[in-house]
Each structure stands twice: as structure tokens, then as C-alpha cells.
């Protein structure tokens, strides 16, 4: 497939701080590509360099094979959905959406048609004459999306566009965004620090850390075969243990608590002691300190409404996993940095 965006050796420094450190990246045409990482990992700076708001200190940005590194934002065929939406407060919804079209001198009839299409796409028909201040957060978000997409850019950049919405609305917008992207077929580059969002929406994900890309692959690949401990820890919950000089990671849902009546055939089993139990609705998280060293967290499905599906704290248990689910990983990161403490 054709490459829409190619970053080569892209670097941005602020004084002594290297925000983006010589990254190489290719985004294919029509892809929903997510840049995922903790704050300060360089994902937003990279996005700004693609949009043209920041100039790279080294390296190039290519759009559709053309080097645009030196071009101003207004000379690039990309549009951005901003984190704070950046709707023009003195213009109506319609005027906001039409703004880009009036700049490029699209004829009036065509403009009206595309504006109507865009409003329909984001389901805001009948809101065209309102001012942004009269809209809810979710509606503003949609106007921002319509204002960008109506220009039919080569690439649409989205900078944590759902960050300000509450959870329900965010989940709904995730589905809508993905759907809209399928309809218009524009390449989306999406920045987020939310791993669930990234896994839900993306064709491919690049995990950023300290200005570098740790891994770029499909959500499944990223989750099942994390390249290193940082990726394993940032995307999902990681159970990193060391056995025979090798670092392994096993996802919590792949770990079973072996009891009487549950066959342990083909499983690698270890003994340990339960140290923590947390009921979280769909699953119960059970933390087990292994006798061979290290600890793992198992996610036990609450298929029965028994009182203590994972046992009791202090209980001696046997845990098991299939050998192929213990994924061999490299050191912590390419830079050997402790992943950020994250809530589970």
C-alpha cells in the first residue's frame, strides 16, 4: 500500500532536552495509525512536526512522497483536530466548518454541499447556526472533526481529541471516529495516552517513550508480542518474571489458578502465595508471589458468582499458563527506563 506519511530521522530538541529522537516511521494510506505513549514521550511533538507547527532540528517529513519539512502549516495538505478543539468562538458552527473551504476559494455551491455533508456525517444537522459556546463538549468535538474533514486532507491529525469527554461519551466517539474514518478513507494519525483507546481504534500503533518509538505494530501484535518490558507494561498489565536468565511476560488473563478439578495438562505450573485480591466486576485480580521469585497478577473471570473465585489472601495456590503465552522480552526498554507507575 502507498505510504502517505514518512518520517525519516525526525528530531526535535528543546535546549538540552531531546523531545523527539531520530524517529523513522511510515504511515500507509487509509490507515488508522495511533501514536501512544505517556506524557512527554514525544508523540504530540511528532504530530506538531507533521502539521508544521514545529520545525524539526533534523530529519524530514514527507507527505505523499513530497518533502514538506520546510513548509508552513497552511501549505500542507493535513488538517488537525485540536485537543481543546480550537473552534473559532466568533463564528457559527457552519462558518467554522466552511472556514477552510473559503480560504481555498471553493465555489459557494460546492461549499454549501460539502458543509451539509460534513454536518450530517457528525450528526449535527440543525445546529449549523449555533455558536460553539452553545454546544456541549461532545458536539464541539464533532464540529472540530467536521471542520477538519470537510477539506478532504491527505492526512487527518488528531491530538487527544477525546481527552476532555467523559467515559461513556468517549467510548461512543471512539466507535464513531472509526466509522467515519472508514467512510472517508482518509489516513488518520491519532495521538493518545490511553491504551484502551489505542487498542480499540487503531490499525497500527506506535508506542512512544522518551522521544523514541519502542514498537510499531498491530494492536494484537503489540499486546501478544510486546517487544520489551516498557511496551508490555504500557499496553495492558504486564507480568514480567525472570526464569533461566530469560525475561518473560505473561498477560493476566492467560494465567489460571489451578484447583482441584481444573486440568493442568500442557500448562507450566508454579506454586505461590496469594497476596492481594481485588474484585473489579468482570474479573477478579489475584496477585500471587511465586516461590521461584517474582510475582504475577492473574485475572480470574467471574463466571460464577462465588464469593472468592481467586481464593483467600495468604492461601497457597498453584498457577499455570500455556508455554506459548510466556513471551520472551528484552530488557526494560531500549533505554532501560522504569515504566511509569500506572493504575490498573
Amino acid at each position: 500500500m502507498a505510504v502517505d506519511v514518512r518520517l525519516t530521522g525526525l528530531t526535535k530538541r528543546y535546549g538540552d532536552f531531546t523531545a523527539v529522537d531520530a524517529i523513522d516511521l511510515e504511515v500507509r494510506q487509509g490507515e488508522f495509525f495511533t501514536m501512544l505513549g505517556p506524557s512527554g514521550s514525544g508523540k504530540t511533538t511528532t504530530l506538531k512536526m507533521i502539521a508544521g507547527f514545529e520545525r524539526p532540528d533534523a530529519g524530514t517529513v514527507e507527505l505523499g512522497g513530497e518533502d514538506v519539512s520546510g513548509l508552513a502549516p497552511y501549505a500542507r495538505s493535513v488538517n488537525t483536530v485540536f485537543q481543546d478543539y480550537a473552534l473559532f468562538p466568533h463564528m457559527s458552527v457552519e462558518e467554522n466548518i466552511e472556514y477552510g473551504l473559503t480560504i481555498t476559494k471553493v465555489p459557494k455551491a460546492e461549499r454549501v454541499k460539502r458543509r451539509a455533508e460534513a454536518l450530517e456525517m457528525v450528526r449535527l444537522e440543525g445546529h449549523g447556526n449555533r455558536k460553539p459556546s452553545e454546544l456541549s463538549g461532545g458536539q464541539r468535538q464533532r464540529v472540530a472533526l467536521a471542520r477538519a474533514i470537510v477539506n478532504r486532507p491527505r492526512v487527518l491529525l488528531l491530538d487527544e481529541p477525546l481527552g476532555a469527554l467523559d467515559l461513556k461519551l468517549r467510548e461512543q466517539m471512539q466507535v464513531e471516529l472509526k466509522q467515519i474514518q472508514g467512510e472517508v478513507g482518509i489516513t488518520f494519525i491519532y495521538v493518545t495516552h490511553d491504551q484502551d483507546e489505542a487498542l480499540t481504534m487503531s490499525d497500527r500503533i506506535a508506542v512512544f517513550n522518551e522521544g523514541r518509538i519502542e514498537q510499531a505494530s498491530s494492536p494484537r501484535d503489540l499486546y501478544e508480542h510486546p517487544a520489551n518490558e516498557f511496551v508490555a507494561g504500557f499496553v495492558g498489565i504486564s507480568n514480567a518474571i525472570e526464569r533461566d536468565g530469560r525475561k518473560l511476560t505473561i498477560r493476566p488473563e492467560k494465567i489460571r489458578i489451578v484447583r482441584d478439578g481444573i486440568p493442568a495438562d500442557g500448562l507450566i505450573t508454579e506454586t505461590g502465595k496469594v497476596t492481594e485480591i481485588a474484585y473489579v466486576g468482570m474479573v477478579t485480580r489475584v496477585k500471587v508471589d511465586l516461590d521461584k521469585g517474582g510475582s504475577v497478577q492473574a485475572a480470574v473471570q467471574n463466571t460464577e458468582s462465588e464469593a472468592e473465585p481467586g481464593g483467600r489472601v495468604g492461601e497457597e495456590v498453584v498457577v499455570g499458563w500455556r508455554p506459548e503465552h510466556a513471551v520472551s522480552i528484552q530488557g526494560e526498554t531500549s533505554k532501560s527506563v522504569q515504566p511509569e507507575e500506572r493504575e490498573t
Binding site: 508552513a72 502549516p73 497552511y74 488537525t80 485537543q83 473559532f88 468562538p89 477552510g100 480560504i103 477538519a148
Partner: peptide
């Protein structure tokens, strides 16, 4: 006034002069 308004205008293809005329000045009115 958030600078992202001016960024958004540039992003939508407006030259600095157009941005000044159509976004910055109206918001300073």
C-alpha cells in the same frame, strides 16, 4: 486567547495575514 485558534486557522490553510484578519482581530474586538 488560546494560540490554538491561530494554529487552527493556519492548519486550515490561512496565511498569517488572513489569520490575523479573520481570527485574531475579531476575537480582540
Amino acid at each position: 486567547m488560546s494560540t490554538s485558534l491561530e494554529d487552527a486557522s493556519a492548519d486550515l490553510g490561512a496565511t498569517p495575514w488572513t489569520t490575523f484578519r479573520r481570527v485574531t482581530i475579531p476575537n480582540m474586538r
